[in-house]
Amino acid sequence: MKYFSINPSANLAGLVRCFWVLEMDSFSGVPYIHRTMADGCVEMVFHYQGVFEELLGNEQQITSFSSGISGPSQQFRRFSIDQRFGIFGVYLYPFAMSELFDIPALALTNEMIDMTTILGTTGKELEEKIMLAPDNQTRVAIISQFLESKLARRKVKHNGMSETIRQIIRTDGSSNVQRLADDSFLSMRQFQRNFKEYAGFSPKLFTRIIRFQTALRKYSEKESLSLTDIAYNCGYYDQSHFIHDFKEFSGHHPGSYFSGKAEGTKWITV
């Protein structure tokens, strides 16, 4: 299993957090289970080799898209594949969809929509270019050119809510919501309504998801910290709140996840 990320160009850094690649070059005969978790950001995803089956309840499953957009999510989803695969992703700030495609993040919340449905003919052409690219550096060049062309034509040049969302992410979800509303010179009701349009969630739920993502990013099974230490370091009031949010957003107890043996964590721990 191989995972790596690539930084965007300076022109795109305000909208794109990174590009990423996940590949499995050999198949052992045992299906690989991949688990997506709650995330406050948006992803453009291209399966250039292999297509996953999404595992639903009651032992049902459906074929996932070959390329599409995954919106801000407060839930986890499970996928399976029994062959080699390669995935190329674009990790976007949630407000990027509004600024680049005039699609509010709220319209994509907890949704996974195939590329053609959401971007039409343009999405189909983009998918074909990404799928036919000889390597991931070429894929980065293709998607960068596409996004920069959208960036040059965007109508929204300065959006205060975008900076507010970036601040919450920069501070790992520790920003005070009331202070953010005051700084925006909006009433709390106006602030919450505008924030939800650009982030997909209320400010409170968004900060909870960002704190959860901080725990995923900063700690691994190699850390000697206790769950209480991790909870405190990530801004949780206590361990019980940390465990509650972690189970809600990942489906795992944090003790199981950080052991490195939980389902869907192989790409993280290798």
Rank of each mutant, 00 (worst) to 15 (best):
V156Y: 06
D114K: 06
C18W: 07
M115P: 11
I103R: 00
T138E: 13
T171Y: 12
A181F: 00
G86C: 12
T164G: 05
Q83R: 11
N7Q: 14
T121Q: 12
R211Y: 01
Q74S: 13
A13I: 11
E221H: 11
E221C: 13
L132S: 11
L147D: 03
H253E: 06
K196Y: 05
V140Q: 10
E23F: 04
V16F: 09
D135V: 05
G14P: 15
I209P: 07
V30H: 10
K129V: 04
E23A: 12
G86I: 04
S250L: 08
Q239R: 15
N58E: 15
S226L: 02
V270W: 10
E221P: 08
L216Q: 02
G29T: 01
E128A: 07
T171I: 11
Q74I: 04
S240P: 06
V16N: 14
G57R: 07
R170S: 06
Q74D: 12
M131H: 10
S5T: 15
S67Y: 03
L186M: 15
E53I: 07
G120S: 05
G173Q: 03
A181P: 01
F88C: 03
I142E: 02
S256T: 11
H158R: 15
I169S: 02
V270T: 07
F246A: 01
E125F: 09
R166Y: 07
A105Y: 05
G29Q: 12
S226E: 04
I103H: 00
K124N: 07
Y91N: 13
L12K: 13
L126K: 05
P203H: 02
V45G: 01
S64W: 07
F76R: 04
F19I: 02
F185I: 09
T109K: 08
Q83L: 00
G57M: 09
L22K: 12
T109W: 00
K124R: 14
D114T: 01
M161Y: 10
G14W: 04
S224N: 08
L100V: 15
T117E: 10
T171E: 09
S73D: 05
G264T: 01
L15P: 01
T164C: 11
P8F: 00
I62Y: 05
N159L: 13
S5M: 12
R193Y: 08
L126M: 09
G260R: 02
E197S: 03
E59K: 15
V156P: 02
A262G: 04
I209Y: 04
P8A: 00
L180M: 13
R17Y: 09
V140N: 10
A141N: 09
N159P: 05
L119A: 03
L147N: 00
A152F: 14
F4I: 02
H252A: 09
N110H: 01
S259T: 12
E128Q: 10
D102I: 02
L22H: 01
S202H: 08
V42I: 15
L12C: 13
G14H: 04
T207E: 09
R17S: 13
L12V: 09
R166W: 08
I142S: 09
Q192K: 06
Y198K: 12
A133H: 06
A38G: 14
D245S: 02
G251N: 03
G71L: 03
G255H: 10
V30Y: 12
T207C: 14
K266V: 03
Q239P: 06
L132T: 06
M112P: 00
S144V: 00
V16A: 11
S220Q: 06
R170M: 11
F195N: 02
K196D: 04
G120W: 12
Q192H: 10
S26N: 08
L22E: 04
